[in-house]
Design a protein around this nucleic acid. Structure first.
Lengths: 344, 344
DNA sequence: TGCACAGAGCGAAACGTTTCACTCTTGGGA
DNA sequence: TCCCAAGAGTGAAACGTTTCGCTCTGTGCA
C-alpha cells in the first residue's frame, strides 16, 4: 500500500537535489529557506531514513552487538540495562544475543553479528579461547570483553578484581575468628578460578589449613551450591563459615541451609560473591562481595565507544599497540549484612 | 584492507552470472557442476551475504524487535531467553530494546525498530494506550503484546489469567481459615489492576470485609512492598495473611518482615505473585502464583512467526478480521511452599 | 526428424542512500 | 571594478544484493 517515503519524494516535493537532502540529513550547511522546505516535506511525508540503504553505502549500522553467555540472570541483564543506556546516549542501538552457555551458539552469534555489520561488540564469553572471535577481528570490528578475560588474546576485558575480593572476603571470615572455613566455587570459568585462587591464597597466607572436604569445586549452579552445602552440613565437623562463589551457588546453598536445622549465623556464617538484591530476601541479611555493575558497564561501553570514535577518525589506520590493551580491573565492594558471627 | 568478498567476486571466480549466484544463495536449482563451483568460491573467498544489501532489496531484515518495559528483572529476561530460542530456531534474530519504564523511550524504541525495518515486534508495553504503536502499524509490521494488553486496541496479547489466579490465591488463604487478609498491590498497570480485581472479587464473594488499612495500593516496587508491610505489622490488629502482588513487592515485604519480630507463617502467612526462583531463598519457602514463562514466550513467538509466515504468503493482503485477534490467556499455577499457616 | 517444454542461466534494472568532483552564486578586499 | 574564495547546490556513480523477463540447451514424445 502506501510505501514509505524516500529521499526522492522529498526531492520531488522541494525541487532540491538528492545530494542536498542527504546533506541536510547528515547535518550539513543549508540555506535557511531550503532547510525549511525540507523539514516541511519530511513532516508532510512522514519521511524516515532507510537505515539499510544508508548502511549499504556507509557500511556502518549504528548497532552494537552484545553477546552474553546467558541472558536469564540478574547479573547479565543488569549489565545489559546499563550498557543499553550508554549506547543509546551515544546514538547506538544494542543487538543482544544469548549464547545459552554454549560455545557453538556463541560462535554462531559472532558470525551473525558480523553479517549484520554491527559497528562493535561487547562480549561476555563462554569459550575460553579467543578463536571464536576471528570473524569479528577479521572484519575489523572492535571488541570489548566483560567479566571473563580471554588470556593471551590481547583483547581488553572490563572486570572485577575477583582474586583480591575473594581474598578479602575470606580475610573477613578469618578476622571474625573463623578457622573452619569452607569454599563452594567453580573452576569452569576464569572468573570462578580467580575467586578460588583468592580464597586459597588467604588460607595459605594465614597458614590456615582446611580439610579437602571443605573445598567444594564444581560449577556455578544452584545444584552445586545445594549439594555442597548439604554435604558440608553432614560432616562430622562442619565448617563454621562458608564462602559462596556466585549468585547461583548462594541460591542453592541458602536453600539447603533453610531446609536444615542449622541457623545462620549462629551455627554457620556465610559470605557470598555477587548480587545485592538477593540479600534482601534472606534472613539474616547476607554479607556480600558486590560487583560495581554500573561501573563495569560504563567502562566497557566507554572503551568501545572510544574505539568506534577513533576508528572513524583514523579511518582504519589504528595503532596496533593501542589495540592490545590490557584488562581494566575494577574493585568490588564488601557490603556487610549480618550473616557472619564472631568466633573467639 | 581486505574488503569483504561480494557476489561479484564469486562471479569473477566462477564465470557465472550474478543472478545465478543469487539463485544459489536463495536455494534455487542449479547444475551440480555450477553449484560446486560456487561453493568452492564461497569457501575460498570466505564470502558472507551482506544483509544490508539484501535487506535493501527485499525490505526484510530477518530481525524481530523486542521492546520490554524494563530489562533488568528476572521476569523479563527469562522471557527474553525463551523468545530468543524460538526466534533463533525460525531463523530470526532478536533486537532487544529497553524502555526503562518510560513511555517516551518506548515510543522512541518503536520508531527506531521501524527504521531498522524489523519484520515483527514483541512488546511488553509501558504505555496504556496503543498510540505509540502507530509507526509500526503504519509500516505494516506485525505486533504481538505480552503480559499487558492494550485494551480496545485489537492487538493480540499473550498473558496470564491475572484475575482468576489472584482470586484463587486469596481463596487459598481463605480456605486455610484466614479472614484478616491484606493485599499489597499496584494499580499502575493493567496487570496490577487485574490482580487487585481478582483479590477484591474473592473477598466480595466470601462477604469477607476487610478494613481499608489492609488494602495497600501503590506500584510494583520494592519500596511499596517494604513500606506497606511495615505499616501492616504496626497496626493494632495486623492481618494474619498477606497477598503480595508481584516480584518487587514480595522482595520489599519479605525484607520488612525479616527485620520485624513477626514470624512467617506462625504470625503472618504469605502468598506471592510471580517468580519461582526467589522462593528458594526465603525461609520458609514461599507459596507462589507462578506464571508459565516458557508457555507465554512460546505462544507469543508462535503467534508472531505465524503472522510473518502468512504475510509472506498473501503478500500483504491480510484479512483485517484475522488481525483483530483477541488476547491469548494462559493459566498460572499455584506452587505451594510453607508460608501459609492453617487458622481455625 | 521435428517440436514443445522444462530447466538452467543471463543481463539489466531496481532498492534508497552517501559521496565525489564539479558548478554556480555571492560578497568582500584590493 | 575586478578577482577570488567560501559557501551552497548538483549530477552521477557507487554500495551489494534480488528479481524480472528473456534466451539457450537438451530431453522426451509424436
Amino acid at each position: 500500500m502506501n510505501l514509505a517515503a524516500t529521499i526522492k519524494d522529498i526531492k520531488d516535493m522541494t525541487g532540491l537535489s538528492l545530494a542536498t537532502i542527504s546533506k541536510y540529513l547528515n547535518g550539513g550547511n543549508l540555506l535557511p529557506k531550503n532547510r525549511e522546505k525540507i523539514e516541511r516535506a519530511i513532516a508532510e511525508l512522514h519521511y524516515e531514513v532507510n537505515e539499510m540503504a544508508r548502511g549499504l553505502v556507509t557500511s556502518k549500522s549504528k548497532v552494537i552487538g552484545v553477546v552474553v553467555f546467558d541472558i536469564a540472570n540478574v547479573f547479565t541483564c543488569t549489565l545489559l540495562k546499563y550498557l543499553g543506556e550508554r549506547f543509546r546516549e551515544a546514538g547506538y542501538a544494542a543487538m543482544i544475543c544469548d549464547s545459552q552457555n554454549d560455545a557453538q551458539q556463541e560462535a554462531d552469534n559472532i558470525r551473525f553479528l558480523v553479517n549484520k555489520k554491527v559497528d562493535g561488540m561487547i562480549i561476555i564469553p563462554v569459550a575460553q579461547e579467543a578463536g571464536f572471535l576471528e570473524p569479528a577481528l577479521k572484519a575489523d570490528i572492535p571488541v570489548v570483553l566483560m567479566d571473563r578475560s580471554l588470556e593471551g588474546s590481547g583483547i581488553a576485558c572490563v572486570k572485577v578484581n575477583n582474586r583480591e575480593s575473594s581474598y578479602q572476603a575470606l580475610e573477613m571470615l578469618y578476622n571474625y575468628g573463623h578457622r573452619r572455613i569452607a569454599v563452594i566455587g567453580s573452576d569452569r570459568e576464569l572468573t570462578g578460578r580467580e575467586r578460588l585462587d583468592g580464597c586459597l591464597q588467604l588460607l595459605k597466607d594465614k597458614k590456615n589449613e582446611i580439610p579437602a572436604s571443605y573445598l567444594k569445586i564444581g560449577c556455578h549452579s544452584i545444584e552445586h551450591g545445594y549439594n555442597s552445602m548439604q554435604e558440608l552440613l553432614r560432616l562430622k565437623e562442619p565448617p563454621t563459615a562458608v564462602f559462596l562463589g556466585n549468585f547461583e551457588i548462594i541460591l542453592g546453598a541458602v536453600m539447603a541451609l533453610n531446609e536444615s536445622s542449622f541457623q545462620c549465623p549462629s551455627d554457620i556464617s556465610l559470605i557470598g560473591f555477587d548480587d545485592l538484591i538477593i540479600s534482601n530476601l534472606s534472613n539474616p541479611r547476607l554479607t556480600l562481595v558486590v560487583q560495581p555493575l554500573r561501573d563495569l558497564a560504563d567502562n566497557a561501553a566507554g572503551l568501545l565507544l572510544e574505539r568506534l570514535q577513533n576508528n572513524k577518525n583514523t579511518s582504519g589506520e589504528t595503532d596496533p599497540e593501542k589495540q592490545k590493551q590490557g584488562d581494566l580491573i575494577l574493585p568490588a565492594q564488601i557490603v556487610e549484612g549480618s550473616s557472619i558471627a564472631r568466633r573467639l
